[in-house]
Simulated assay, not measured.
Amino acid sequence: MGINLVKGQKIDLTKGRSSLSGVMVGLGWDPVVKEKKKSGFLGGLLGGGGSAAGAEIDCDASVILLDEKGKLLSKENLVYFGNKTSKDGSVVHSGDNRTGDGDGDDEVINVNLSAISPSVHKLVFVVNIYQAKQRKQDFGLIQNAFIRLVDSGSKEELIHYNLTESYAGKTSLFPGELYRHGSEWKFSAIGEGTADLDIGSIANKYL
């Protein structure tokens, strides 16, 4: 069982773990259970009825790889569903989960710590709602969000961070970040929400 973190807590991942060369980062969330609509059989059964607000909530996980000055030097260092591998090949996105239904990780990102370019000093993890404005959705419609890190070799869960705050009105979420500290890698539990609408606008802030 991994260490359960709280917001703002930092933990050294590699100290005392000489064999840790990579981590699997799992991100998960569940849609808030909505009452079925009373009007129309199909509308109630599918929970959508064709309305934007009733559409499935499609959360997308991304990683922004930054240099020591906190800058994104290349668009190839933005890893998301449209670019699943970082420039140096160290970060690989497993693909897009469009509903968040079911137990366990909804999206998985594999990080090969030993292969990360020396120019990369921080990995920022982001989750945003696809077409949040058009669908009139925000993280108030999401529950049980978490981020966890697992040793890629031993499959041991190292840390688990449940995001328990209310993020109503927020359309993007920063669960946590991996960063260099000398020769070691640390993880920081961030848990901040913003009103950014897409990963492109978020990434532009780091240029």
Rank of each mutant, 00 (worst) to 15 (best):
114 S>C: 13
175 P>T: 05
202 I>F: 01
34 K>Y: 04
60 D>P: 02
33 V>F: 08
55 A>V: 00
3 I>F: 10
24 M>W: 12
40 G>M: 09
102 G>K: 12
79 V>K: 03
78 L>M: 12
51 S>K: 13
1 M>Y: 12
20 L>G: 08
89 G>I: 05
164 T>K: 15
177 E>P: 04
132 A>V: 14
7 K>V: 07
86 S>Q: 02
56 E>K: 15
126 V>W: 03
50 G>E: 02
16 G>F: 07
42 L>N: 03
114 S>W: 04
53 A>T: 12
43 G>L: 08
14 T>R: 11
168 A>E: 14
188 S>Y: 09
7 K>N: 12
7 K>D: 07
24 M>L: 15
61 A>R: 06
15 K>P: 00
172 S>A: 15
82 G>T: 01
55 A>C: 06
26 G>S: 11
77 N>V: 00
189 A>Y: 01
72 L>C: 11
160 H>S: 11
57 I>W: 00
95 G>F: 02
132 A>H: 05
65 L>Y: 06
146 F>H: 14
203 A>K: 00
57 I>A: 13
41 F>S: 12
146 F>L: 09
172 S>V: 05
35 E>A: 14
31 P>Y: 00
178 L>N: 05
53 A>H: 14
178 L>I: 07
182 G>R: 11
97 N>R: 02
180 R>I: 03
198 D>Q: 07
174 F>N: 09
106 D>N: 15
179 Y>N: 10
30 D>Q: 14
112 N>A: 14
161 Y>V: 01
150 V>E: 13
120 V>K: 14
184 E>W: 01
